[in-house]
Amino acid sequence: MFLLYEYDIFWAFLIISSVIPIFAFVISGVLAPISKRPEKLSSYESGIEPMGDAWLQFRICYYMFALVFVVFDVETVFLYPWAMSFDVLGVSVFIEALIFVLILIVGSIYAWRKGALEWS
């Protein structure tokens, strides 16, 4: 099918843009000087000796936000084809999407009330 010709360009662009960082690494690997010293390689902690492991336990809020995000992300994916077919179908679709969005608004109000969106 000749209509889909542009996809080779997409692939070529993808390959070229993935080559660019590799290319940069190679060039700088050739050009850059190397002088290793133990002090230089230790991780930066405001000038004092690094204490303990860096992979510390963080707060669960990050996880909660990611959870709520997944739900809304799925919602937007379903709304995209709906938006593109809106002019074909009209009023009935509008009501469907309204119900769809309203149910999710209920969900977000629940999340809000229960404090899932709270950074405390």
Partner: peptide, 13 residues
């Protein structure tokens, strides 16, 4: 789907 998403949200929270 939207009801399932709602249930998932409530359950996760």
């Amino acid at each position: 789907i939207s009801i399932i998403l709602l249930a998932a949200l409530i359950g996760a929270i």
